[in-house]
């Protein structure tokens, strides 16, 4: 009996450590961080006063958020749900409306000549008391507007979504609809708080 005991069956040890392994795999959250990427404008030289950059009014899309998280878009009150459509309309300017950004013709790689609104700027202004979530909502809707426009163009020209396009095609699409959301202080673009 004693001789039989000194060889312990170790095969279950592997199962135990497998269990441990799986337990750790499940419990450690990979902690994938996601967010909205933005680029800030470079700082002004300290001796220079922030000046109103001369932007043609028709090229400017002003979104203001007040302390009650309400939106003022181009001088009109607007629900956040309608912001995306309004922004798309502005960026695209399909009807060549004189109150919307000027259109320029350009020969693009792959898709040929197209009209695009290269000078448009979307300016987001906010109050000191605006809630962060409301600000992110606005940013999100604006990014969504760009993404949808790029997707529509991708479907139209290449027959697939923006995500499925290769790098060269994506670059062209980004060129047609460059993301121009101003991150500067509201007063940089002549809008009051």
């Amino acid at each position: 009996m004693a001789r039989k005991l000194n060889e312990i069956n170790a095969s279950s040890m592997a199962d135990i450590s497998f269990l441990l392994l799986i337990f750790f795999l499940v419990t450690t959250s990979m902690n994938v961080s996601t967010g909205l990427t933005r680029r800030l404008p470079p700082p002004l030289p300290p001796d220079q006063q922030p000046q109103d950059i001369d932007i043609n009014k028709r090229n400017l899309f002003v979104v203001k958020i007040n302390s009650q998280n309400q939106l003022l878009v181009q001088g009109e009150e607007l629900d956040i749900r309608d912001l995306k459509e309004k922004a798309k309309e502005f960026i695209k300017n399909a009807a060549n409306d004189p109150n919307m950004p000027a259109k320029y013709q350009k020969e693009f790689d792959l898709i040929g000549t197209m009209e695009y609104t290269k000078e448009h700027v979307i300016s987001v202004g906010n109050d000191v008391d605006t809630q962060y979530q409301a600000y992110i909502d606005v940013q999100n809707e604006l990014v969504a507007a760009y993404n949808e426009l790029r997707n529509e163009l991708a479907q139209d020209k290449f027959g697939k979504s923006f995500e499925e396009c290769d790098e060269r095609q994506q670059k062209v699409l980004q060129e047609v609809y460059p993301q121009k959301i101003s991150e500067a202080e509201p007063k940089n673009y002549g809008g009051g708080k």
Partner: peptide, 11 residues
């Protein structure tokens, strides 16, 4: 001059 920023947000 840290100009590249990310606003972290959940889905």
């Amino acid at each position: 001059y840290a100009l590249k920023i990310v606003y972290q947000a959940g889905a």
